[in-house]
Amino acid sequence: MQGNQVALLIVDVQIGSFREIEPLYKAEELLKNIRLLISNARKKHIPIVYMKFNDKPGKPLERGTSGWDIHPFIAPTEEDTILEKNHPDSFHETNLQQELAIRGVKRIVITGIQTEVCVDATCRHAFSLGYDVVLVKDGHTTYDSEILMASQIINHHNKVLHQWFANVKELHEIEF
């Protein structure tokens, strides 16, 4: 079945990532930006796929805990697809590629958490699979590390991914 040729992919925006003890960089802005992307996608009947990371027991995104749930500010509807994953790469050992193929998706707009891990791995694999990858420049975030501030990590990945693996666009430039 051929359908829309674009999909919105929301990577790991789960409650457990929004911890006060280790705050996400620009967390509120991220949620607002993703909510706007969702609204724009729904207006044009663009498929929306949510990825949920199954973390190890005792971790903030442990499967089955309240932290594992998708953040309620960007809650999915019955029309949306929710897939679980056990690895940073949203394609690795998941049905994501099959779900996109069923819908005839050729271009993926990617947003989510965590810039240098799951977002990066997903962008690179999507590119390797031949998708036209669009990374929302102001639609992904991370935490400060021991070495770099979150803003530095985000800026670095926007630059590297744009050079090789994705068309990096700001929220206002995204068209479905």
Rank of each mutant, 00 (worst) to 15 (best):
Q2E: 09
G3V: 12
N4Q: 12
N4K: 11
N4T: 11
L9K: 05
I10T: 06
V11D: 04
D12Q: 10
V13W: 13
Q14T: 12
I15P: 06
E20T: 15
E20A: 14
E22L: 14
E22D: 00
L24V: 14
Y25L: 11
Y25V: 00
K26I: 13
A27C: 06
L30K: 04
L30G: 05
L31M: 05
K32V: 07
I34G: 08
L36V: 09
S39F: 13
N40R: 15
N40D: 11
A41P: 07
R42W: 07
K43P: 03
K43H: 09
P47R: 00
I48D: 06
Y50L: 05
Y50E: 11
M51A: 06
M51T: 13
K52V: 11
K52G: 09
N54V: 07
D55N: 08
P57E: 09
G58D: 10
K59S: 14
K59P: 01
P60G: 09
E62D: 14
E62W: 14
R63G: 00
S66Q: 11
S66E: 14
G67D: 13
A75F: 05
A75K: 13
E79G: 02
E79K: 08
T81D: 00
T81I: 15
T81G: 06
N86R: 06
H87F: 14
D89A: 04
S90Q: 02
H92D: 02
H92E: 01
E93P: 00
T94Y: 03
N95C: 00
N95Y: 02
Q97V: 01
Q97C: 02
Q98I: 11
E99P: 02
L100T: 03
A101F: 11
A101V: 09
I102C: 03
I102D: 05
R103Y: 09
R103A: 10
G104M: 05
V105E: 10
K106Y: 01
I108E: 01
V109S: 07
V109H: 06
I110H: 07
T111Q: 08
I113P: 00
I113S: 02
Q114W: 14
T115H: 00
T115Q: 00
T115R: 03
V117D: 04
V117R: 03
V119S: 03
C123Y: 08
C123N: 06
R124D: 02
H125F: 01
A126G: 15
A126W: 15
L129C: 06
V133A: 05
V133H: 03
L135T: 07
D138R: 03
G139T: 15
H140S: 07
H140F: 11
H140I: 10
T141K: 07
T142P: 02
L148F: 12
L148W: 09
L148G: 02
M149Y: 12
Q152A: 15
I153S: 02
I154K: 10
N155S: 13
N155M: 00
N155C: 04
N155G: 02
H156M: 12
H157V: 01
H157F: 09
N158S: 09
V160K: 01
L161N: 01
L161Y: 02
H162F: 09
L171I: 12
H172V: 04
H172D: 10
E173N: 05
E173W: 06
I174E: 07
E175C: 07
